[in-house]
Design a protein around this nucleic acid. Structure first.
Lengths: 179, 179
DNA sequence: CTGATATCGGACCAAACAGTCCATAACTTG
DNA sequence: CAAGTTATGGACTGTTTGGTCCGATATCAG
């Protein structure tokens, strides 16, 4: 997962992977079946260990503005925590792989959709509690916050510092101005 | 440019390029020097012919909210216009290449910075005209709008329809609520 | 200890890769 | 038109790619 994260799908060779994982080619092929299957497994692991905790901040128990701010902070932290793995495996590696390898396109859309749907669900709860402006569309607003999050990940990949991105995330607060 | 756009840097071979460009390897190497230099030339062309017109919408002569909305519409249009070239050469291809090829990291940051700086400049003009809330930070807000734009590009690559993304862009309007 | 089974290590393969080369063809220019 | 220069075509090279194979090693049951 870390190798794909740092170098992308096409930029990673089987030798890179065996070196990082400490096993030989045969073991890798025996255990995972091939590069593509291993990448899918890495994406699963990334989703479970990296994305899920960040999404969990949306259920932090605060106001919708607080929870979304915490979510965006988590995004920034994930994208900038380790200089060797800047940005996001999905935003950076999978988005590119979806072009050269059509099989990844659906996977990319699916990963994207999970994030948007989770945010939208939180927003719908806020709307029910009248914490959102009356005319707001939770789905569109959720997608906008998701797009912002992915954009922050790209900016992290380009080398932005964490403090800097925190300010950017803070600048997005008007999206959730209370009614 | 189109081949890199569709298939990414590592996903594109010299043969792909010669086939699309209608010339032979020697001509390509003679004219551009190599794959990396050709990619840089493609990025230049992309910036001049695709990104610059979209950024120009920021000087559309409307209110800051109108100009930014027009800019985001342009982003959505660029990312969804041609099913063969979904998303953005910079957001999708360069972000990945920056991982495997360190030389591209600076280039990626530079391309990103141009967009943010252009938006921030427009916002500063708005602030001078008191069209922005008093406490707003034009640099941070510009970076947020830039991140949103790049996130929309990723969503376009994942296959989102234009109408859909237009709604998402519209949902971001509160970012520019007048003071 | 023995025999069956699962795992491992490293050599191996064909294909694809980026990049080079030189003989030929097409211009340019005096 | 002829000499000099530039662009082109396609064969070639050494390397790296993802993937396979088989002998050696470890694990475990009886």
């Amino acid at each position: 997962m870390r190798v794909f994260w740092a170098r992308g799908y096409d930029g990673t060779s089987i030798d890179d992977l065996t070196a990082a994982m400490g096993l030989t080619r045969s073991s890798l092929y025996q255990a995972f079946g091939g590069k593509e299957a291993l990448f899918r497994a890495a994406l699963d692991r990334y989703g479970a260990t990296r994305i899920a905790p960040v999404l969990a901040a949306l259920d932090g128990g605060g106001t919708v503005a607080e929870d979304v701010a915490a979510f965006l902070d988590g995004v920034v932290a994930l994208g900038t925590a380790d200089p060797a793995h800047r940005g996001c495996l999905v935003s950076c590696a999978l988005s590119d792989a979806a072009g050269a390898h059509p099989g990844f396109a659906a996977l990319f859309a699916e990963r994207f959709g999970v994030v948007e749907a989770t945010i939208a669900e939180r927003l719908r709860r806020a709307a029910d509690a009248s914490q959102l402006p009356p005319g707001a569309d939770p789905d569109a607003l959720g997608a906008a916050i998701g797009a912002l999050a992915h954009g922050l990940m790209l900016r992290a990949r380009a080398g932005a510092a964490r403090e800097n991105l925190s300010k950017v995330a803070a600048a997005a607060r008007p999206l959730l101005a209370a009614a």
